[in-house]
Each structure stands twice: as C-alpha cells, then as structure tokens.
Design a protein around this nucleic acid. Structure first.
Lengths: 358, 358
DNA sequence: GGCCGGACGTGTTACGTATAACTGCCGTCG
DNA sequence: CGACGGCAGTTATACGTAACACGTCCGGCC
C-alpha cells in the first residue's frame, strides 16, 4: 500500500519494482531473512523450510535485487571499466568480449571507455561510466585516458604495458617479442634480407616493443637491411606507407613487415598497384590475425594474438585483486600463422651484396 | 572521524570517498545546499556567494556524487542497455560508438549485452548489466535476448525492425529497401540479368526485408533471373556459398549480390579460385561499407549504412522517451558506393535468351 | 533447578543522495 | 501595526539492501 502510494506520487512511470520486503511479506518472514537466504548466508540462521519459502516467493514474484541499493550498502558496484582505444577495431572488440565473459561469471558488469577518439573530445572517463567503479582495465594504447584516472586510486590492470609501470596493480601481457621473433625468423629463413617495417605511428609501449624486437631480431642476421616506415592504423595509411617503402631510393625491400593486419591489407594494395606480385615479388606480413587477414588475397601470414583470452586474463587478474588474492600477471603466448602472403624472394638471399649474382 | 572509523572497520580498502556532506562541511553549509547547488536547482534558494563556495569546495575536494546513492534516491540509473548480436562485427561496434556518444551527452552510460553468441550460453541480460536499467535499445538481430526482456516493461527502442512490432516503444530504421533498390538498379543498368543473392542465413526482420526488396526490384526487369543462396556472416561461408552459386547447373550468374561485405569478401575469393575475374566475369556487391570493403581487391561496390548515426538516432529516441517527449522514429537514408567490383557483364545483357548470340 | 549455548529469527541501522517540508527573517503593503 | 510572501537556508525523510546486535525458545548438563 504505502509503497504503491509513494510510487504513484513519485516519478516512476515504468514499474513498481518488487523489493526484498515484498518477498518477505509473501514468505512470511522478515526482510532480513530474505537478504540472508538470497545472499546464501543462512547456514544456521534460518530454517531450511523458511529458506525454501523465501526462494519460491522470490521466484514467483520475479524479485531482482536493486543493484543501486546493494552497491550503496556494500560500497562495491560490481562494475569494471575497460579503457580501450577505439572499439571499432576488431581486436579490442574481442578483448571486450573475453573480459565481459569473465566479468559475468563473477557477477560483474563491464562499462567501456573507448577513449577520446571514439567518443568525443577528452571526456572524463568517470562521466561516461555508468556507475562508480570497482576497478579498471586499461590498454597501454589509451595513455591519455589513464592520466584522468590517476587520482582515483582504483585497482588498475594494464594490458600490454611496461611491467615496470608503477601505476598498475597488475599487468597482463602478450608475448609480442616472441611473435616478432618467430615472424622475423620465418622471413629470414625464406631468404629475405631487405625488410621494411611498416610501424604503427602510435606512441605506446606495445608498438615500441615491436619496433625494438624487430631491430634486435634482424641485428645478427648477416646482410639484413632493416628500414622503418611509419603508418597510421588504417588501410589507406598502409597503402601510402608501403608505396613510399617500395619506391624509396636503393634496392627495393622484398618483405613488408606490418604492425597490424589493416596496415598489411593496405600494403598489399600498394604492392599490386606497382605491378608487383604477392608473394613472388614482395612478401607481406600482418599482426593480430583479424577476420581481415583471410579476407584479402593472398591470405596474410600474421601473428595471431589471442584477443579474447587477453581480455579474460585481464579481467581475471582484476577479480583476483578485488578478492584480495595476489594478482596473477601472466604473459600469454602468441602464434605465427603462415599463409600465402609470404614466400622466398625471387632474387637470391644475398644478391644485394653481390650485384652480379645469379 | 566517524566516517573514517567505519571505513576502517568496513571493507573499503581502496579509498574513503568524499561525500556531499564533506563538501557541505568545507563550504560551511548543509548537505542539502550542496545537493541543490550541484544539481543546479538553487535559483532562489541559495545565495550566489554560498553557491560559489560550494562549487569551489567540491572542486578542491574532488567530489564525485555517489551514483549508486543517486540512483537509489531518484529511481533512475542513467544507464541504457544496448543489445546487439556479437560486438566483434565492425557494424555494431560503430553503432555502439554512436549510441555511447549521445548517451554521454545526456549523462547516461551504456552497458552492452552482446547476445548469447558473444558472451556465452543464454545468460540473463540483467545479470550481465552492470546496473538496473532505464531503457533498452535492441537490434532486431538479437531476438532471443528480447524474449528475456519482455517482462521488464522498460522503454524499448528497436533498431531496424518491423514498425508494427508492438514490443517497441519506438523504432529506428535504415532505409534498407532504398539501398537495395539502388543496388539492383546499378546492376541491371550495367546489363546484369542473372543475379544470385548471397543471403545471410540469419532469421531477422532486416534480412527478410532485404530478400523481399531484392525480389521485388528484379521482378519487373525483363529477362532477370534471380537465385538465392544462403550464407552465414563469415568469410569462408561467403566463399562456400559463392562457389555453390557459380558452379550450380545452368547459366552462370554474372553478379553476386551479397548481404554484407564479409560475405562479399568470401565471394571474391571463390570467384578467383574458379579462375574468373572481378568484375569482368562476375560482379560482386557488398553491404554495410565496412573497412573491409576497401581492403579487398577490387574494392567493393556496396551500400553504405550510417552505423554511428544509427546508434545516435537510437539513443536519441530513447532519451526522448525517457524525457516524456514523443519518440522520434526516423528512417535514416543510405548510400550506394560504387567501386571496382562491379562492371558490365562480358556477355550481352540477354544472351541467356539467345544462346547463339555475339 | 538454574544456567548455558545453539538454532532461529527479528529490529534496527547505515550507506549517500535528492527533495519535501519547515523555520526565520526582512521588506512591503493593506 | 500586523499579516504576508519571497529569500536563504536547514532539518528530516525515504529510496532498498546487508549485516550487526539483540532477543527468544528449547534441550542438555552440572
């Protein structure tokens, strides 16, 4: 009665939610008992018979706890914030999917902060968050958003970032260095020596690591000649960068090592526009193994990053921290996927050194 | 003092949040005054001087209202649920981006329910939602999730769905029929008569509409021969379907009209594997205009769907409903983008009717 | 028989906010 | 001169939940 009256007087046009008190009334117990039973804390406090009565009453009334009230009472919102650069990239959409799956298993929700590029000019992450937060998972590619979070002293799990970064409570990494190593080994084993790295022009730890790993891997290959060409993470950017790389003065590179599949797709177009063939004249490699990698022709040799598992591991680490357990900080293995976009170069491995060769 | 003690006794290891009462103390006013000032309802209730004092105190203390408490008090959570089929598709990621932008402008957050495929077996949308909800925006492609929402009687904006659907408070549509019309007009004007529709095998209103629109558009083209081949929304599914279509008994189709760019990418691969050329031997068209459309070669002629605007319009409609204003239910225009994957067929338009032609 | 302790519950409180209802106070007007 | 209304605030309350601190009953033990 009273609750109906207040609901009518208030501005709840939608529904009169059934509360734990309604359930209590229906089951003939107190509200406290309902809370105990549904919270599974009734071991020696409520008789099994009444507990069952509460459960059936709750089921029949379609009771759902008011999460706002619960959050207010408990001081925890069961909500995590995932900070990623533009969600429209398949990679982070998959990271989100994995993270959301694990979160759901723990009764947590995930809100997204797709970073300024995606959502508008420099907005406060907290304003975009639907609720107050229990923790944050952030990609190292979203540095500017992190500065806004720095004063919140929330548990922070960083994805693919410098383990020495002291802002992070835990760090989950992909074994990018290993992926790069296997990729360069693949290329050099095929005989490639003149390799241009189409490097993402994003200022982040991961991409810096990739560049370093590529350089180091090629350092002790005799005759290897590494160049580097920056490119934005877009098809046409990859196209322009590859065009520049292939038409640069000096002997033409025989392989283009691209920082992601999207750049690689653009690079493929550039190669073909110059009248060259893939992989006979130029080999092209990607990174990530997006759906794109098998949509283009030839299919891309690429490094498969376990995106869903990445998100899952990040969320698991956050859950550990929130439960007071020590944070596991794994490094996930990656895979080299060889497909049709790589092959031995047409010229001999070291013909650059012996101009009259063959 | 008291708040510190309880915080220490409780389980708030992270931070002692500053409350509106703390701000009130600092500004020398009551908590109610703080609420009035920060809620911008102080016109004749608080003096400008004190109002300013409250604002500076709030700023200096870094005060952020506790959203759980606010939601509990107001009965509204300022959170909308977006129900989409698998977020990993670029299209819905862009829809989300648009929706989130508009939501943020209204102080709303968006939680995602990427539907069972994306997040696991048949989970209750509400359990995955971070908070109780003020409203729902749902794609017609996520029908099974909607059944779980039916008893919630929340405002529901449907995306791309039957306007007659009475579950929806408002419906926002794309002018798919117009897009199909322009696409078929483009193909028939080029001279294509034998067209196979690689139709998404998804049971949803949009795709049914596309199929109907294709049929109707070709009905009054003399000599037009439409076939239909179902395909899942994936590259390899498109490949298999296209292969089947191209090797089916009878004269080979000269154009493959695909229900989305991903299927089209697969179709392109099938065409080439049969030793045929695009567009000389077979024209291929896509739908959506994803990044993929310009990554493959030749670039796809496709129907551009304004994904971000779609999400924006959906969220705007929801905001209207929640504000008690009449729901605008627009139909957004789409664009035909002609690129390299379509051209006149090699044979005469009606050589199927005259086998000895040319 | 008195006392103790476990089983079974209930009363009460607090979380932080928004807002209705109330209290002075001062200038003005009938 | 008293009533009245607007300004400038405060006090009090309710939202729904979780959990602490009490009660009460009853069986068992000294």
């Amino acid at each position: 009665m009273t609750s109906n009256e207040t609901a009518a007087a208030g501005r709840h046009p939608a529904a009169v939610r059934t509360t734990s008190r309604d359930v209590a009334r229906a089951a003939g117990v107190s509200q406290a008992a309902v809370s105990l039973v549904l919270g599974d804390k009734w071991r020696g406090r409520v008789s099994p018979a009444k507990a069952e009565a509460v459960r059936t009453a709750a089921r029949e009334l379609g009771y759902r706890p008011n999460l706002a009230a619960r959050s207010l009472r408990m001081g925890r919102t069961r909500t995590a914030l995932l900070v990623v650069p533009a969600l429209t990239t398949e990679f982070f959409a998959r990271v989100y999917t994995g993270a959301a799956r694990v979160a759901a298993d723990h009764g947590f929700g995930v809100v997204l902060y797709p970073s300024p590029e995606g959502i508008g000019p420099a907005r406060d992450p907290f304003d975009s968050a639907a609720a107050t937060l229990d923790g944050v998972i952030a990609s190292s590619m979203a540095a500017e958003a992190l500065t806004a979070l720095r004063d919140a002293d929330l548990p922070l799990v960083m994805l693919d970032s410098d383990p020495a970064d002291d802002r992070a409570t835990a760090t989950v990494n992909l074994d990018i260095a290993d992926g790069v190593r296997r990729l360069t080994t693949h290329l050099t084993a095929l005989g490639h020596r003149r390799i241009t790295h189409l490097a993402a022009d994003v200022d982040s730890w991961t991409f810096a690591l990739r560049a370093r790993a590529v350089s180091e891997a090629l350092e002790h290959i005799p005759g290897a000649r590494l160049r580097r060409q920056p490119a934005a993470l877009a098809v046409d950017a990859g196209l322009h960068a590859a065009h520049a790389a292939l038409t640069a003065p000096g002997p033409r590179p025989t392989a283009l090592l691209c920082d992601d599949d999207i750049i690689a797709a653009g690079a493929c177009k550039a190669v073909r526009r110059l009248g060259l063939r893939i992989p006979e004249d130029v080999s092209v490699t990607g990174f990530d193994d997006l759906a794109l990698a098998v949509a283009v022709e030839p299919e891309l040799t690429t490094v498969r990053l376990p995106a869903e598992e990445f998100g899952e591991a990040g969320m698991r680490a956050l859950m550990s921290v929130l439960d007071g357990r020590p944070a596991q900080a794994p490094t996930l293995p990656v895979d080299l996927v060889t497909r049709g976009s790589t092959a031995p170069p047409a010229d001999a491995p070291d013909n650059a050194a012996r101009p009259g060769g063959q």
